[in-house]
Write a protein that binds this DNA or RNA. Structure first.
Lengths: 158, 158
DNA sequence: CTATATTAGTTTGATATTTAATGATTCGAT
DNA sequence: ATCGAATCATTAAATATCAAACTAATATAG
């Protein structure tokens, strides 16, 4: 049983970069979302509210896509937001398969209140990096994100 | 209700960099762990097996810390690994609070089989970046990760 | 030595998350 | 017009995840 991994430089680079990527992502997420605890919101719930706040009423599948989540998951998260009266489900008239999500007054008030705090948390979270470094990081992440995208074709041809 | 966010450059940079960071992390994780499906392993279960594989028997709290998870969560993940006979819980003699986790023969065989595949997936996942770019990314992520670390003091003074 | 604090692990209760299966609805090709 | 494919949402079953409360064991202060 090896005590630590010994591979080629290539391999060690990839593994160690991945670990740092994940840790950065998790620590930044934790730090920037800590303020949500006061409002009893989860990161996912905040994501839905923010999406509706900035893009207006959308159907669940759209919101799921924007937040990189499954529609099944969206059902659960929206259930919990609806229980608290922060969003409303509205069945579409034109296409009755769709359910359009709307912020309620309470939901709008809440997200309008916390979004500025969220922005400031983000600025603070990234403040260890200069503007140039943030730009570099964004560029590198963009490349990585694109090249690892899921193969979106769902050819069901059995 | 705003249609999109208009803030200072500072604010837009932080928000957009964060989105790219999260997407990169999620797409790379999904791509590099896809091979686990064949073995019916979750990412968390793989994380535990890998930790034990490379560091040898450890107590649950140690494994939890290495994987950035809570001990409560570790209980669940280890339960599932134990059910499948991949790890064993061994109560420590010296300090009976501790439970040391050991890979079983089956667990060792499994992780030894899939770890090389995992490494190759990682190399492939990062292959869009040059060695220099990976180094830059690692450096930036390291800074971010460190500066956003949780304040570890848990002063319980009510 | 005893009272208090700390630590490891579990349990509980809640939310999140995915995959697979299902129901309802719409679309599309013939 | 109709039958089959595709799409949206939900449900079901399983795992993950955390905070908080709890148990058991150890350590430490007085």
């Amino acid at each position: 049983m090896p005590i630590s991994f010994h591979g080629s430089k290539n391999e060690k680079d990839a593994l160690s970069t991945y670990v740092k990527l994940v840790r950065a992502c998790e620590t930044v997420t934790a730090a920037t979302h800590r303020h949500l605890v006061d409002k009893k919101l989860t990161v996912s719930q905040f994501g839905v509210l923010e999406t509706l706040y900035h893009l207006g009423p959308l159907c669940q599948a759209e919101v799921a896509k924007k937040n990189l989540k499954s529609t099944a998951n969206m059902t659960t998260v929206v259930d919990n937001l609806e229980k608290r009266g922060l969003v409303e489900r509205v069945r579409s008239r034109e296409d009755r398969r769709y359910i359009t999500l709307h912020l309620t007054d309470a939901g709008l008030q809440l997200i309008a209140e916390i979004f500025p705090v969220h922005v400031q948390s983000m600025v603070k979270g990234f403040s260890v990096l200069t503007a140039d470094e943030q730009q570099q990081l964004a560029e590198l992440c963009k490349k990585l994100g694109i090249s690892n995208q899921i193969n979106c074709s769902r050819r069901s041809r059995p």
